[in-house]
Design a protein around this nucleic acid. Structure first.
Lengths: 206, 206
DNA sequence: GTCTATACATCGATAGAC
DNA sequence: GTCTATCGATGTATAGAC
């Protein structure tokens, strides 16, 4: 276990991609334990033996799928991060960033399924959770921290900790409202959340 | 499916409790799909037929376990919420509350497993996610909102939204550092987080 | 009510033909 | 390299003795 290579050089490249695509669909929908290799094979349009021939065993296939997702989903959380005019009003830049991150994540159902799996399997697959932290959370945190540090007019006492406040606020909001179906139970508009968050950070004058 | 009664009046009350305890242990450790009724029976010290006799099927048993947990874990997230001197310095009250919530959740591994399961299974068991929102998230949000609203000296423009900032900050911190094993990858002390959060909320002067 | 024994489906993984 | 066929283990659920 745990010897996932990126891909294979031999064997059919087309089938490899088909298996990865089918496995991704099934794992995202059902998690690890509820996904059988028969389902994966059927979703990929190949035989079960071919799946094993390409990826060894179920756990290795799961590893490859999750690592691929962790690498590819960075743009969803950070957006294209268009090199927007850095000299704009910080308040507008901040609320713009927050709104864009919120919209990106809300729109990308596959990303929500990915987060679900990562958290759900983080007990039995701690290495996968770490891959998420390294490839997604850490870059996002560092990018935001650099932005905060390069804007001394925000007068932030602790930019790195402020980033956690912002990330936590946004992530938990999507989790509670969308993924855990809290939208109708504890309703709150994205605008109110983003505005409040922005005001708290930019009005931080002591 | 979906006809979980609280308990049974007939049958052995002692065995019912043993089954619930064993099922809770196994479901929390492995999630729904990876937990077999054989494991539950063994953990409870009864036969598999007895488990079925008491709870009908696997899904009903899972429902009862999760609902019980959602009802009982309120104190973990809110603490005993000791009716602390309401006339204290809001800054101290706020950081005290945040610190206590953080410590409670970090200490209670069972609660972390519970959150893991809720999120992990929220796709296939949306009703269970809603039970979490109704029994845990909503009361916590409302309690905090009332506190914020009863302290006009905080000068919060939107207390309800500010509560989400605070909850999200704390919840995501525990998730990233503890549950997803990010402690060594993106380290940050609880004190810095709590201090920053408290300053942002209390220094919100426009 | 609780047990043992078992029915029947599906699981992960592999052997062997092509 | 890819398939069909199959193995042994394990899954949910139940029948029937006590």
């Amino acid at each position: 276990m745990n010897k996932y290579q990126t891909h294979e050089g031999s064997k059919s490249e087309a089938k490899t991609e088909a298996i990865l695509k089918g496995a991704m669909k099934e794992f995202l929908a059902g998690g690890y334990a509820a996904t059988s290799m028969d389902k994966v094979a059927k979703a990929a349009g190949v035989s079960k033996a071919t799946v094993y021939s390409h990826f060894g065993d179920k756990e290795s296939l799961f590893n490859v799928v999750i690592h691929d997702l962790a690498r590819d989903k960075f743009q969803t959380v950070m957006g294209l991060d268009r090199p927007q005019s850095l000299n704009e009003d910080p308040k507008k830049v901040l609320s713009g960033m927050a709104t864009r991150m919120l919209d990106n994540v809300k729109r990308d159902r596959q990303f929500q399924d990915f987060i679900r799996i990562i958290i759900g399997e983080s007990g039995r697959f701690p290495e996968l959770a770490k891959a998420y932290v390294n490839n997604l959370a850490k870059p996002a945190i560092e990018t935001l921290t650099k932005y905060f540090e390069s804007h001394p007019e925000l007068e932030l006492e602790d930019p790195a900790a402020t980033v956690r406040v912002m990330m936590g606020t946004l992530v938990y909001f999507v989790m509670l409202q969308e993924m855990m179906h809290g939208k109708d139970i504890v309703p709150l508009s994205s605008d109110r959340l983003v505005n409040t968050l922005t005001e708290l950070i930019t009005n931080n004058k002591s």
